[in-house]
């Protein structure tokens, strides 16, 4: 009776790994400069490792080891296995390190986390997608998923707002999307020079002539909170019920798995319960300042 294990030693097996925060090694397979401060990275796992499947709207935790970990939504095609694609805007130390990563750079990654877009709510309905700024990144997997199942839903209206024409993401793909006849993509910017022949103005100014049946439509919004709120209010003004609107919210995320408390938004832990939430449930909270 002199050693602990028989008495107090763990009954349940004790994890000896790093737990849910332990990342896996990836390398940058390809890098595309989207704008002055934003790049898209294709991440490939270490040889012999699998890449977990993800749902549109989910995110991963990424770091260039030693430079800080950060939550980045997945912007790749959910139908493409074997890689993770992320669009990163260089803002702080961690994102600057990621955005500066050239092909071959070692990246520590873990995920996917969170609740994504409720894609199945779109089937049989008209779909309105409004994205602003880098908010297009988490919307891209949704778009690709929807377009892969184009016959399963009605009209598709996409409105994308950005700061200037130079800030538009996925330019070649955007051009291809805009050429489609089975969907309408409107792009609008806050300010432009004379070389821009597209729209200038807020995303909400493109909504009045968006074509959808308010009685049978869903809307997916992603962008700055104030933009999503104005957009949701405008959509409600056009008769789309609150129940048909989803928003993707942002708060600081550190653990990604509901342990650290950073990403609280009222009753929600956004990493676990979000980032996509029904607008019906958060409309009131979005109007509370400093929540």
């Amino acid at each position: 009776m002199s050693t602990a294990p028989e008495i107090a030693g763990p009954v349940a097996p004790v994890p000896s790994h790093g737990g849910p925060l332990e990342p896996a090694p990836f390398t940058v397979r390809a890098r595309a400069q989207e704008t002055r401060d934003t790049v898209s990275l294709v991440l490939a796992p270490a040889p012999g490792s699998e890449v977990p499947a993800f749902r549109p709207g989910q995110f991963n935790m990424l770091s260039v080891p030693g430079r800080g970990e950060v939550a980045i939504s997945i912007s790749g095609d959910p139908g493409r296995a074997g890689e993770w694609v992320h669009t990163v805007r260089a803002l702080g130390l961690a994102t600057q390190a990621l955005a500066g990563s050239m092909p071959g750079t070692l990246i520590a990654a873990r995920g996917p986390y969170g609740q994504g877009w409720p894609v199945d709510r779109a089937w049989g309905k008209d779909v309105v997608i409004v994205a602003g700024g880098v908010g297009l990144a988490p919307v891209r997997p949704l778009l690709l998923e929807l377009l892969r199942h184009r016959a399963r839903f009605g009209r598709l209206e996409v409105i994308y707002g950005a700061r200037t024409p130079d800030d538009l993401l996925y330019a070649p793909e955007l051009a291809a999307w805009r050429g489609r006849t089975d969907a309408r993509f409107q792009v609008t910017v806050d300010a432009a020079g004379r070389d821009w022949y597209g729209d200038v103005g807020l995303v909400t100014q493109r909504l009045p002539d968006a074509r959808f049946d308010p009685a049978s439509a869903v809307a997916f919004l992603c962008g700055p909170e104030i933009m999503m709120r104005l957009t949701a209010e405008t959509l409600e003004g056009r008769g789309l019920p609150r129940e048909g609107i989803w928003v993707s919210l942002e708060r600081t995320m550190q653990c990604g798995v509901g342990l650290c408390g950073h990403c609280q938004f009222g009753p929600y832990l956004l990493c676990r319960d979000g980032p996509v939430l029904p607008y019906r449930d958060v409309a009131r909270l979005l109007r509370i300042r400093g929540l």
């Binding site: 700024g133 880098v134 700061r163 806050d190 300010a191 962008g223 700055p224 104030i226």
Partner: peptide, 17 residues
């Protein structure tokens, strides 16, 4: 009023980094 609102948000620079 709508254009004034829009201008305010453009001045606010809602998508600024």
């Amino acid at each position: 009023a709508r254009r004034l609102d829009a201008t305010r948000l453009q001045v606010f620079d809602v998508y600024r980094p």
